[in-house]
Design a protein around this nucleic acid. Structure first.
Lengths: 190, 190
DNA sequence: TGTACATCAGTGAACGCGCGTTCACTGATGTAC
DNA sequence: TGTACATCAGTGAACGCGCGTTCACTGATGTAC
């Protein structure tokens, strides 16, 4: 076994297909992307795809696994304040979301598209968002002047962050606008 | 010409196909709905569809036209207050949105799905939302303590209303939670 | 009011395109001795 | 170190399914005289 050149190259092709998938999704949208779009983008033959993934959904799953793995790595990052009466604590959470969505934008949008068409992916998406909702709800529960039930408000906050960030362009000043809006919205400025 | 029974029946079948389309979209989602799903729902043969619409997109356009026609009818409805320092004015706008989305939920969601896959529909959707954004921005511009540029904040408000209402269930108490969140968010509680 | 012909909504089987997926083949890597 | 055989990633043409769309046909409505 001479270092396993074969396995190595196969793994690399698999990774190249993932990268090509991301580029194709970015260009055409997940739902409009055909298998040949991905293989062409990777400079490979159509049939090659199936050596690595049984179908397009599996490629998206693989990309999602990468995203989550990376997310876990940075999860315990410093700076986490949990008193939402402190604007800085709110801003920190908004910025986290912002960075995550910016970084994984294409895969997140692809997941959203897959979810509109496939119940399993819709379920997958809910499972990804739910922990965040409850994390935020936990912080909110400590506030006095909340406009409603903590979980409902948390859902509003994550919804707002998710869709607004997806639609916004690179302009980072939106982080502060979002922060202020949310900070006021949850009654921080009492 | 004996009252034009033929034209009348044709028009009715066209309308029945629209209604069947809405039911099919609600059940399967717009993107997953096939032409036969619609004709079967209407109790008609597959080929019949093409007597009335050239394709599924045209049916959605027709449904959209109905929605907009109805919307224009109720547009000048009473109760419109435009001073957003007044919570009631904000609540009125939220309730308007709520009613509109509730009433046309299926078509709105279908449009959203169509937009993820087709640039023309994406453009159509932007055109539908843009007047609302500027309407809201106009009200916001009169406030002092806005968290950012009026149009940006207006976009946040409409985004939040649109996606949150689409996801929420029938529970109307969400109107007040949304209202409070937005009212605080835009700095109303100064 | 009646007859003969024209038009048209609706039918459902058939057609054909697009694309996902398979498969026989190739050439390179791995293994056995 | 060399030879013979096995395995496997990758190729690209071919296959076949699903579904949108067409079309010859039917029966009912409309028109002309």
């Amino acid at each position: 076994m001479s270092v396993g050149v074969r396995k190595q190259q196969a793994a690399q092709t698999g990774a190249e297909l993932k990268a090509a998938g991301v580029r194709a999704f970015a260009r055409l949208g997940y739902l409009n992307t055909k298998i040949i779009d991905i293989t062409a983008e990777a400079g490979r033959a159509a049939g090659s795809f199936y050596t690595h993934y049984p179908n397009k959904e599996a490629l998206l799953e693989a990309l999602l696994a990468d995203v989550l793995a990376e997310g876990d790595a940075g999860a315990a990052s410093a700076g986490h304040r949990d008193d939402f009466r402190d604007r800085a604590a709110v801003r920190w959470h908004v910025a986290q979301y912002w960075d995550f969505y910016r970084h994984h934008r294409v895969v997140m949008v692809a997941l959203q598209q897959a979810a509109t068409v496939s119940e399993p992916f819709a379920e997958r998406m809910r499972q990804m968002i739910e922990p965040d909702v409850h994390h935020i709800a936990g912080h909110l529960a400590k506030l006095d002047d909340l406009p409603g039930d903590p979980v409902t408000v948390a859902r509003m906050v994550t919804t707002l962050m998710g869709t607004f960030i997806a639609a916004a362009d690179e302009d980072e000043s939106a982080i502060d606008t979002l922060t202020d809006f949310i900070y006021n919205g949850i009654g921080g400025r009492a």
